[in-house]
Amino acid sequence: MTLAATAGQLASGATTTAAGAHGFLSPTGVEIAFLLVGLVTFGAALVTVTTRQLVHAALWLVVTLGGLAVEYLLLTAEFIAWVQVLIYVGSVVVLLLFGLMLTRAPIGRSPDADSGNRWAALAVAVAAAAALVWVVVDAFRTTWIDLDGPAAGSTRVTGQSLFQNWVLPFEALSVLLLAALVGAIVLSRKATADAATAATGVKEATTATDVTEATEVTDSAEGRGGAADQADKGGVR
């Protein structure tokens, strides 16, 4: 797919050499840096989705996300770049590593990291990449980003636009984060409660004469006292 990318960019450059001051054959330093960091980012992303060592996938994901932060810096979006480093590299990858640890992921190579439909997935991905790259190159081959002047995404600009025009979505987002926090806590607490009382729950379920009654039991099993009442009802029935 890297070949496709370079071929597409070469094709786009060949058609836009008449674009005035911007020449494809004389790229600016920012463009060269963007291309190099983009190659590293894309390669790391490929290794992330193809490696058979689960922890290595998470570590290559760090490279990918860090490369994307550098791309944001090259696009003069400073604030987003540092938010990317803080949130993605700092917390999301650590969360993923904790998830790998808690699900007892094997440290070495795991032969079943990829499922059997790998080739179908590869075909779908290559087709989607070809279509997207073709459309994007065809649409924006004469479009240039003007990176001169003040930064488009400095903290001052981003903060002003965020708190002048986007205050309501910002506050709604805080409510969403609160909901996600409560949801994560509820999910983990329910799992631990189930693990703690699984023995009694399974015994109650076996004494019930029907699976639907078992689902009735567990439907109202938020507190185990209610579950015991329901199990008594099932026994009476």
Binding site: M1, A5, T28, F34, A45, L132
Partner: peptide, 18 residues
């Protein structure tokens, strides 16, 4: 900077994730 560079990179990353 050519707009195609970030657009193509994001398309390729999206397809890698796909």
């Amino acid at each position: 900077m050519h707009l195609v560079h970030p657009a193509v990179l994001s398309a390729l990353l999206f397809c890698t994730g796909l």
